[in-house]
Design a protein around this nucleic acid. Structure first.
Length: 605
RNA sequence: GCCUCUAUAGCUUAACGGAUAAAGCAACGGUCUUCUAAACCGUCGAUCUAGGUUCGAUUCCUAGUAGAGGCACCA
C-alpha cells in the first residue's frame, strides 16, 4: 500500500551504496516495533556483514550498520509522505505522515469494501481437496479440523487471486463400508432412524457393533469361535457380491451410502462449505486398473503376480535414488484388486486432465504423508508436469484427552454434538448478555457465535501441531477466540448504527485525519493497512493461522480503540467524521478477515 | 533399524536469521449514571540439553533427551 514511497527510498539507498562502493544486501522492510508511531524499517546488518566479508570492514558489524544507517538518513533528506527518519541501532526507521497515510488507507478500504485485500488475478488454477471422509462413518471433530482447514485455505487462495476449485473425495467402498452393510442386513434390515444426522450417526454406531462381533476375543469358547467365523464368512460373501455387482447388495450400498452423504452435505452446509467437485473412491476404482496396465507396460511398475506376488513400484530404484526415501509400494494386490494408492493415481489424472489444474493441494492428515509422497513420486515417473505442484498439506491430528479417536471402537466426539453444545452454551449466555438481540434472531446468532468459537479454535493452531480436543477450550468465548473478534465487529456496527450514517461514506464530509491521532487510532489504521499482505502470506504459506492471528490482533486494536476513544461524543465534526470512517474501515476489514476464516460476522450479539 | 514432526510462562499457543520473545487461560489488582463489560488497563511468569554456523540463533546445522507418527498387498 506504500509501494511508491518505499520505491523512492529504495532507489535513494541504492544510489548511495553504488556511489560509495557499498555491497548492498537485499532490502527487507518490516513495520517498526514498539508502537506509538507508524512507519517501516530496514536494517543494514547484512550489508555491513557483506562488507566485512569482502575484507573492507575494520569495524564491528553493528557499529558499521549504524554508521550506514546514519549516512543513508543524511542522503535521503526529506521525502514526501515521510514525517521523520531515524537511524537507530543499525536500523533505518521511516515514520509516516499520519494524516496522509491514514486517509489513503481508509479511502482504499471504503472504496473496495468486500474486495479490500484481494490479490491481483494470478494465472493459476488451484484445486483444494478436503473433507475426504469415509461413508458409513460419522463426521467427527477430526473431520471438522480437516474441513475447516481446507475451506479456510480455499478461501485464502481464492481471495489471493487464484482460480480455486474445491473438491471432496469421500471413501465410499472398502471393508469398513461392507462391514456396516453386513451388520445392517443381518440385524437391522428395514430400519431407518428419522433425521439426517441421527441416521448417519446410527450407521456409525452399528459399525462399532459389527467390529465387536467380528473381533477375535481372548478365551473364546468353540461355539463363540464358530459363530464369529460364520459372521466373517457372511461379511466376505457380501464383499464378493458387491464386487461382482450383485443387484441386492449394490442397492443396499447405494441406500446406506446416500444416508452418509446426506449427513456430510448437511455438515458442509452448517460450515458454509460449497464443494465444486465430488470425486468418489468408487468412481476411480475401475479407471485406476487401466493405469496400472499402462505403468506395467512402461516399466514403471513391476508385475510380480506370475510369481504369486503383487504389482509393485520400486519408487526409489526407478527414480535412481540410492538412499531409501519413497521405498516400494503396491499398486495391485495379488488378487488384482486396487489399493488407496492406485486410486489416488487415477484421481490425480482426473484433476490434471479433466479439470486442468496447475496446482493440487491435498488437505490430509499428516499420518498419510509417506503415502502421498509416494503417489506424487509415481505421478512424476509417469510424466505429469503438475506432479511437482502437488502439495500435501499435512496437519496434526485431533485426539481426545483419553487417547486417539477410533471409529472402529466408537471412541469419537461427533462434530454435530459439539456444534449443538456450542449453540446451547451461547444461548445460555445470550439471555443475560444480549438484551439487544431480538428473540427471532437468537438461534441464528447463537449458531454464528458457537461455530465461530469452534472454527477459530481449530484455525488458531498451526498446521503441524496436534490438537488434544477439549470442549471447554474449543467453546470458550473469552480471550483469544472467535467471539472476541465477532464482538469487535458488533461494536463497530453498533457505533455506526447509532451515528445514523450507516455505511454511506457520502453522508460524511471529507476525512482528512488532520488532527492529533491517539496511539490507538494509529495502531488500528496500521493493522488495517497490513491486511492485504497478510492475505498473501497466509495463502502462500498455506497457513490459515496467519490470518487467524491477524484477525485477533485487529480485533484487539479495535477493542482498545473503542475503549479509549469515544467516537460519537467527539466534538469536532471533522474529527468525528474521520473516526466514523475509521470505524467503517475497521468493520469492513474484520468482516473480510472473518470471511476468510469461514466465520460469520453477526450484526448484534 | 530407517524416516518425518514436535519441544517457548503453571496450562494452550505466537514470533520472514535481527531492535525489548508476543498473546490467551489460570492467579492477583483495578475499570460499567459512558458508542453493549462476550470488553478495557495493570502485576506475576518462558526459549529441552550440549556443541556448531553467523556480526547476530527461539529460528539454520550436528548430536543427545523426551513425546507423537509413518515405514509393500489398510485407508
Amino acid at each position: 500500500m506504500f509501494n511508491k514511497e518505499q520505491q523512492i527510498i529504495e532507489t535513494k539507498i541504492k544510489e548511495f551504496c553504488a556511489a560509495n562502493d557499498i555491497p548492498l544486501a537485499e532490502l527487507k522492510w518490516q513495520p517498526i516495533p514498539f508502537s506509538g508511531e507508524w512507519g517501516f524499517a530496514t536494517s543494514f546488518f547484512q550489508t555491513a556483514a557483506n562488507e566485512a566479508r569482502a575484507g573492507r570492514g575494520g569495524k564491528p558489524v553493528p557499529q558499521r550498520a549504524q554508521e550506514m544507517a546514519e549516512q543513508v538518513k543524511a542522503q535521503i533528506g526529506s521525502v514526501d509522505g515521510i514525517s521523520r527518519i531515524d537511524a537507530v541501532k543499525g536500523y533505518l526507521n521511516l515514520y509516516f505522515s499520519t494524516a496522509m497515510y491514514a486517509s489513503r488507507v481508509i479511502n482504499e478500504v471504503l472504496s473496495l469494501n468486500a474486495d479490500f485485500g484481494r490479490g491481483t488475478k494470478k494465472n493459476e488454477r488451484v484445486m483444494v481437496e478436503y473433507a475426504n471422509l469415509n461413508t458409513h462413518h460419522s463426521f467427527h471433530i477430526g473431520h471438522a479440523r480437516n474441513t475447516i482447514l481446507g475451506e479456510a485455505l480455499a478461501r485464502l487462495a481464492e481471495f489471493a487471486g487464484y482460480e480455486t476449485i474445491r473438491a471432496s473425495y469421500p471413501g465410499d467402498l472398502g471393508l469398513s463400508v461392507i462391514t456396516t452393510m453386513w451388520v445392517y442386513d443381518k440385524l437391522y434390515k428395514g430400519q431407518e432412524p428419522k433425521g439426517v444426522h441421527e441416521r448417519g450417526q446410527w450407521l456409525a454406531k452399528i459399525y462399532v457393533e459389527a467390529t465387536a462381533l467380528l473381533e477375535k476375543k481372548d478365551n473364546e469358547t468353540p461355539e463363540e469361535t464358530a459363530k464369529r467365523e460364520g459372521y466373517e464368512a457372511g461379511r466376505r460373501e457380501m464383499y464378493r457380491k458387491w464386487d461382482e455387482g450383485d443387484e441386492y447388495v449394490r442397492g443396499l450400498w447405494r441406500m446406506t451410502r446416500e444416508w452418509s452423504l446426506e449427513e456430510l452435505r448437511d455438515v458442509l452446509r452448517m460450515l458454509d462449505v460449497k464443494m465444486d467437485v465430488w470425486f468418489y473412491e468408487s468412481e476411480v476404482d475401475e479407471p485406476s486398473k487401466v493405469i496400472v496396465d499402462e505403468l506395467i507396460e512402461r516399466n514403471i511398475a513391476t508385475d510380480e503376480r506370475p510369481q504369486g506376488g503383487a504389482v509393485i513400484v520400486k519408487i526409489d530404484e526407478k527414480l535412481g535414488l540410492t538412499k531409501e526415501k519413497y521405498r516400494t509400494n503396491v499398486l495391485l494386490r495379488s488378487d488384482g484388486t486396487t489399493l488407496y494408492l492406485t486410486k489416488d493415481l487415477a484421481l490425480a489424472k482426473m484433476k490434471f486432465e479433466q479439470y486442468q489444474v496447475d496446482r493440487s493441494i491435498y488437505v490430509v492428515d499428516v499420518r498419510q504423508s509417506l503415502h502421498l509422497q509416494q503417489a506424487f513420486a509415481i505421478l512424476k515417473l509417469w510424466g505429469f508436469p503438475q506432479a511437482e505442484k502437488c502439495h500435501h498439506l499435512g496437519y496434526g491430528f485431533v485426539s481426545l484427552p483419553e487417547g486417539a479417536m477410533s471409529s472402529r471402537r466408537g471412541h469419537v466426539v461427533l462434530f454435530k454434538d459439539v456444534a449443538d453444545e456450542a449453540v446451547r452454551r451461547v444461548l445460555a449466555v445470550e439471555s443475560e448478555k444480549s438484551g439487544d438481540v431480538p428473540e427471532s434472531e437468537r438461534e441464528k446468532i447463537a449458531n454464528q457465535i458457537g461455530l465461530g468459537a469452534l472454527v477459530y479454535s481449530m484455525l488458531s493452531v498451526d498446521n503441524n501441531k496436534d490438537i488434544v480436543f477439549d470442549i471447554n477450550e474449543a467453546l470458550s468465548f473469552d480471550g483469544r477466540t472467535g467471539p472476541y473478534i465477532q464482538n469487535a465487529y458488533v461494536r463497530a456496527n453498533s457505533i455506526l448504527k447509532k451515528s445514523k450514517v450507516e455505511s454511506q461514506k457520502s453522508d460524511l464530509g471529507p476525512s482528512t485525519f488532520d488532527y492529533d491521532l491517539t496511539k490507538h487510532e494509529i495502531e488500528l489504521i496500521e493493522l488495517i493497512s497490513r491486511f492485504p499482505q497478510t492475505v498473501e502470506q497466509a495463502a502462500n504459506e498455506y497457513r490459515p493461522l496467519v490470518m487467524a492471528a491477524y484477525a485477533y490482533d485487529l480485533a484487539n486494536a479495535f477493542h482498545s480503540f473503542y475503549h479509549a476513544v469515544n467516537v460519537l461524543q467527539t466534538e469536532d465534526e471533522k474529527t468525528r467524521n474521520s473516526r466514523l470512517q475509521l470505524v467503517m474501515a475497521a468493520k469492513q476489514t474484520i468482516e473480510n478477515a472473518l470471511r476468510l476464516l469461514d466465520i460469520q460476522a453477526p450484526e448484534v450479539m
